[in-house]
Design a protein around this nucleic acid. Structure first.
Lengths: 110, 110
DNA sequence: ACTAATTATCGTAATATTGCAATATAACAA
DNA sequence: TTGTTATATTGCAATATTACGATAATTAGT
């Protein structure tokens, strides 16, 4: 069917999955890393930094924005994109909790 | 096209994206959380715990395994699945590094 | 008003993902 | 061997994703 049965899972599980999905593309990883690398967040030059056409990047930015990973603000003729610290913080805390749980568990069997 | 241009991105970026993709589904989040919740990792009952058909779960397990997120070991007639601590550790460190970089940066503009 | 610069949207083609019924495979037990 | 249990694979339909050319929309400068 190609359609995810989100209604069978918890809101939290869906949220984490959604954010992970937003990150689950090398171009979007590259966008995030570029946003982290620049001091200012007037970021009209992402298009020149990535080997993809402008509509494609615009689409990736839209997905990152929909997932809450980045925020955008109109800045004259350009758009200022920057990272939403809260969203990435949520992911970070999630994985931290997982690794904490893992270290408490002994070995397992594999 | 539906085809990701992996060759334009770094190996590290592709790897992170691949692992994120493996996690980017609520059923797979649920599988991971179930594996974390049980003490033993003889996990033949995942099928009963999730509201999806057996072939669907088998497929999700396969994807998690391909991405290195879980490991499987044959245990008689059942299969013992458990989490690959190293893989989740990689993700955890990645997000930790990102949040570290973020806290060092001042405000931004959004 | 005209032009240039920047970003978004539309349309479309190629490919990937999701889910399941049906079936296959594998290991054990009687 | 036959049956049972557990998991994998196949095949398919429905839908989603990725990418880009063409085009639109917006804003700034002249």
């Amino acid at each position: 069917m190609g359609i995810t049965k989100t209604e069978f899972f918890s809101e939290r599980q869906n949220k984490i999955a959604m954010m992970a999905k937003a990150i689950a593309h090398p171009a979007r990883i590259a966008i995030i890393e570029y946003l982290l690398s620049v001091d200012t967040c007037i970021c009209g030059d992402i298009v020149n930094k990535l080997p993809l056409a402008q509509p494609t990047i615009s689409q990736h930015l839209k997905e990152l924005k929909n997932a809450g990973i980045i925020k955008g603000r109109i800045e004259g003729t350009a758009i200022c994109y920057c990272i939403n610290k809260a969203a990435l913080g949520t992911l970070q805390k999630y994985f931290e909790a997982i690794t904490n749980k893992m270290t408490k568990k002994e070995g397992g069997c594999c």
